[in-house]
Design a protein around this nucleic acid. Sequence first.
DNA 1: TATCTAACGTTATATCATAACAGTCAAGGC
DNA 2: GCCTTGACTGTTATGATATAACGTTAGATA
Lengths: 165, 165
Amino acid sequence: MTPQDHGPGFCCADHSGAANVTAILTEAETRARAQGARLTPVRRRTLEILLQAHGALGAYEVLEKLSTEGFGSQPPVAYRALNFLVDHGLAHRIRRLNAFTACAHPGHDHRAAFLICESCNSVTEADAGAVSAALDQAAQSAGFHLNRATIEAVGQCSACRDSAA
Amino acid sequence: MTPQDHGPGFCCADHSGAANVTAILTEAETRARAQGARLTPVRRRTLEILLQAHGALGAYEVLEKLSTEGFGSQPPVAYRALNFLVDHGLAHRIRRLNAFTACAHPGHDHRAAFLICESCNSVTEADAGAVSAALDQAAQSAGFHLNRATIEAVGQCSACRDSAA
DNA sequence: TATCTAACGTTATATCATAACAGTCAAGGC
DNA sequence: GCCTTGACTGTTATGATATAACGTTAGATA
């Protein structure tokens, strides 16, 4: 894997802007409280790390950052925080990459699809409304009761196609 | 996880019938040759193991069976055979389960979605035509060039819902 | 048959993830 | 205020999944 680096704000403009970060953190705090959960320092900082990252981060990458900042240094520290975020709709797990990414649209329930660029490794969260509807349909005709779905697409983002051309 | 066991042919009638196995193996052989690849003994046996399994199998489960039958006993043996099958459209990787399953419809290119039952752990391969079209659409409107996609749904199969009721 | 390449099996190691337990802290009842 | 209670944190230890690298074997081809 030889990811290209497009620099800040290029691949994932949705959530990498510094201005958005604090707004999303505040939103997250509110949302967590509403669900009776606490956005503790580790959790908050973990979300912040994901928000500032381009593409998705592995649990151990997150862990490294956390541990250099005085948080715990063992895997469960990262996994717990990440799972918390996922459970509360503040982050997503990207299974194909064994990695996590901040949710670009917290605040409303939604089904997301992820567009993973093979060139620059960026992950874009796309609205999966129509995809999800089609999947519901397919599940239903198989007599399957659908709870959750993972939709991950691999290909090349527009930025990388342009720079390759 | 406490998977229920429905017994043979119950959850995954598509490909667990013993009659189908030999037919699919023959088909696989033909297909492999057509692509200039060889369905060697390990590969053939690996496919057979997947075909006979209910639900998906982890690489180490496959490895264990292989090694008791005189094949190699180290992880690469299983991973190589499994990756070969996936690459040649004879099997699918189910990322959510870290597992593999035989393709229920080899012989024609298709995009598949997987319906994973949380109760009995079965994996059903559903036709993802419409889902795939919707995903193409979503990717296109994001300027993303889509190569491959993973679509995995988690829920409850009809058999388990019936037996729960 | 000589040669070449794909496939195999091995050792070793990398990478990802969780179980279990002890100490700490925040919130609510008294 | 003080204590109880449950959630949270950090640790040790281990489990589970996956791949790199290399020498050997076997099949295809000339």
